[in-house]
Design a binder for these strands. Structure first.
Lengths: 144, 144
DNA sequence: TATTGTTATACTCTATAACTATA
DNA sequence: TATAGTTATAGAGTATAACAATA
């Protein structure tokens, strides 16, 4: 089975999938302790790194979700007071999404924990020189 | 934001997540053309590489899903005639899950396409020497 | 008593399509 | 006409807890 890949290639593929799964599982579990899903965390993180607000459509494209799916998740976050919708001065159809003070505060708690987890599970297990190799090659994989 | 990771470390983390997401998205889309979810494909693949049958509990642990979730997915596959439940000779509570002829046939179609996709998106984009580095390091990440 | 597996149930999430309002 | 976003709706998948049967 999987005969067209050499043993080494197969092992590399399994390692990539296993590492990705493991990391994702650990992140999901950690976020659950803050009552956040990964999509919700991604929304908060995007808003946190954007200086000003973000439109719904733009955010939906960035997160690779549908507009209606994003409306649902933003609704969840808004109900918890973590994000707020503001009118767009240039386009009356559009909405600018912002973090509230509460959202910023939560993100300020979650992000360090997230970073620590990534360091523990990924960065610290990879040699510095190898890290650059992994980065460059996987960036190619991510490319269209 | 994400201040505790250097730019290079952050880039490596993003590359890993992006590569994993990209690969998963492509695989999911390809499997949809066979009307299979990833979990269902994993079930078929596990059964395909196991010589004899597999118990439900053992399979649930391997796939990191609950027993009831597995019962649901196996039910879907069984309804399509791709897998079959057989009694366990040694334990009257247990079930041995097997591929049917139809399941083997479908897997024989899906697996080469899967391998080709993995080759196109991953193996062919990574230098052979780098592949070994990626394999060894990511295997460490996957470890408990 | 513990374990194998199923069932009943409820819930979360996602997408499709139709819709409103504005460009 | 096209675009931004929401809503209504339905479907797929997952987990929890209770259950039956056997070890």
């Amino acid at each position: 089975m999987v005969a067209d890949l050499s043993a080494g290639e197969l092992a590399a593929y399994f390692a990539l999938r296993a590492a990705g799964d493991r990391l994702q599982r650990a992140v999901t579990q950690q976020l659950r302790s803050y009552d956040l899903t990964e999509v919700q965390f991604s929304i908060l993180a995007q808003l946190g790194s954007a200086g000003d607000g973000i439109g719904m459509g733009q955010l939906a494209r960035a997160l690779v979700v549908t507009k209606s799916g994003l409306t649902y998740q933003v609704g969840q976050l808004e109900a918890r007071g973590l994000v707020a919708r503001h009118p767009d001065a240039n386009d009356d159809r559009a909405v600018q999404l912002h973090l509230t003070a509460g959202g910023k505060k939560l993100l300020a708690h979650v992000m360090p924990a997230h970073v620590a987890l990534v360091r523990e599970l990924f960065i610290d297990r990879v040699g510095p020189a190898d890290l650059a190799i992994i980065r460059d090659n996987l960036a190619q994989v991510a490319q269209d």
